Amino acid sequence: MSMLADLVEVVIGVDTHKDTHTAALLDARSGGVLARATVGADPDGYAELVALAGQHSGLRAWALEGSGGYGAGLARHLADAGELVVELDRPVRPARRGGAKSDPIDAERAARDALARTRLAQPKTGPERAALQARLTARRAAVEASATAQRQLHALVITSPEVVRARFRGQSTRLMLATAARLRPTTTADVEVFTCLTVLRDLARRVRFLEAEAAEHEKAIRGIVRSWRPDLLQLTGVGPIVAATVLTAWSHPGRCRNDAAFAMLAGAAPIPASSGKTVRYRLNRSGNRQLNRALHTVVLTRLQRDERTRAYADRRRTQGRTDREIKRCLTRYVARELFRRLENPPHPLDAS
């Protein structure tokens, strides 16, 4: 595959921040800096950057840091303008001598990093993907906050006076929440008892509110997935949350060049770690960890409910494979299956 330097004449590296973006324009052939600019992170600033790039003739490409975060607005603006954008979430940066760092330096480094690349990542795009990402983020926050409140409720029950603790003894978490939600503290009680009962009731109500919020987000996620890619929900082990996680990471056809790249994105591709006569692979701990977790969820579900998967696991055990190794193989298989389904969706007439 050709390097980016062989495809374009100008590369614009952009160091993105909340309020400003700093760009460095580099000549792809000589590597020289043609121009630098810092603009506001708003439509006027985006237009100013495009106008600056237009002053230099030839094909050009943009290398953005954080195209899914601070650079999301600029990435959308450039996509609407038909510009070539390369995603650089974590550019390779050389060691800074003497602590040298500045936005122009980082922008120039981003451009040089893009020039050396042969595998160009495209930014995530699409309104459905953006909607799913927002819903998943909000749901995850609600679920985590609910779990935190439940732990706080357990801890408070343990340290409460016996008159309070006795009401919850032997109860499961769900029963504790129901009991706490029905509490009616009275001011005639001891100040410590009154405070404990009040806080326990508030925690239980918070948990219920957060659970209702998470359920509402999941309902909306299911609706978006069904309208966008309902075929994913037909796969064993793939529910609305797993499907949404996969779709937000995949984004659109062509973003990942093949199933191996998708597996690497998911952290499901083993990494060679051989040395001398020892040939081995190590676990890949990089990549999109939410996507990795989604694939792992599919594997666990299939090991419980899918006869073919269980038969495969039994066969591999007879060959001396451990359960951990079997799950790694299955995770790689699921990544390949999902990628092929995403890149080649079934035709509507085939499903009828």
Rank of each mutant, 00 (worst) to 15 (best):
R165Y: 08
V164W: 02
A145I: 00
R29L: 10
A204N: 09
D350F: 02
A145Y: 00
A269Q: 05
A269N: 02
D19A: 14
L210Y: 00
V246P: 05
M176Y: 01
N288R: 14
A215T: 13
T22D: 08
V163T: 15
T301I: 11
L200C: 02
L34H: 04
L49K: 03
I105Q: 12
D106F: 07
A215I: 08
A189V: 01
A100Q: 12
C256S: 09
A335T: 09
G45Y: 08
I221K: 01
Q133I: 01
W250K: 06
A5G: 03
N292V: 03
R324Q: 13
S172E: 01
A72H: 05
N258F: 00
E65T: 05
D106Q: 03
A261E: 11
L74E: 09
T148P: 00
T278K: 12
R222E: 14
L183K: 01
A313G: 07
I241Y: 00
K18D: 13
E128R: 07
C196Y: 10
G82N: 03
Q150F: 00
L283T: 13
R315L: 13
D231H: 06
E307Y: 01
G126C: 08
R324L: 09
P185N: 07
G58T: 06
R316L: 15
A244I: 02
D323F: 04
A114Q: 02
P253I: 08
Y281P: 01
R135L: 15
N284H: 09
S30T: 15
L233Q: 08
V85P: 06
A166Y: 00
W250F: 14
D306E: 12
R135C: 12
R302F: 06
H217C: 12
A214N: 02
T322F: 02
R135G: 07
H347V: 10
T38C: 13
R205H: 14
R206L: 14
H154P: 00
I224V: 15
T309I: 12
V33A: 13
A111H: 04
G69T: 10
V199R: 09
A130Y: 01
G40H: 06
L303Y: 04
S172D: 10
A145K: 07
V11F: 04
R324E: 11
A141N: 06
A95C: 02
V50L: 15
F168T: 03
T318Q: 11
A110P: 01
L295F: 14
Q319A: 15
A220L: 13
R255I: 07
S274H: 02
G58N: 12
L232R: 00
Q133Y: 06
L235S: 05
L210Q: 05
L342T: 08
T297G: 05
R109E: 07
I326S: 04
S274Y: 04
L132Y: 09
H252Q: 14
G58H: 06
T198S: 15
G58Y: 07
V164T: 10
T301C: 14
R305W: 13
H77C: 11
P270Q: 01
L132M: 11
R60T: 05
R317I: 05
D44P: 00
S57V: 11
M264D: 15
P348W: 04
L342N: 10
A138S: 10
I326M: 04
H296V: 06
G71F: 08
